[in-house]
Amino acid sequence: MIWEVFRQEQAGEYHTHCGNVHAPDREMALTFAQIQHGRRKPTHSLWVVPQPEVSEVDDEAATFGGTTDKSYRWVMPYNRVDPEFAEEIAESEAEQRDADEQRSEG
């Protein structure tokens, strides 16, 4: 049986997918995963999930975020106001601009 492995590098961060292992059960999957996927990269925690339990939808089947203009849900078109008056708003603006750039590059 194949188990998908998710690694969290440090406490508080996100578990992200890093690979998989063959193992006969959950316990053995954890035993193997810590060596195969945790022996070198910094690791705080690992999750294992049976592969058949993972379902997928990809960008062939779906239009994540839509195909028509959805800029109304982003900070960018509200350019008549300035977010710099509060650092948390400016930070949110910067994160959204980054995400939008990554989207258009993708």
């Binding site: 406490a11 508080g12 996100y14 849900r73 982003w74 900070v75 509200y78 008549r80 106001v81 977010p83 509060a86 948390e88 708003i89 930070e91 949110s92 603006e93 994160e95 959204q96 995400a99």
Partner: peptide
């Protein structure tokens, strides 16, 4: 509480739009 912090990452990311939208209406 880590799950709360993770929720906050996404909420703060989105919230900039809300405040700017609100300010734009006020403006």
């Amino acid at each position: 509480w880590e799950p709360y912090a993770h929720a906050m990452d996404k909420i703060c990311f989105e919230e900039g739009f809300h405040i700017k939208h609100g300010e734009d209406i006020m403006r």
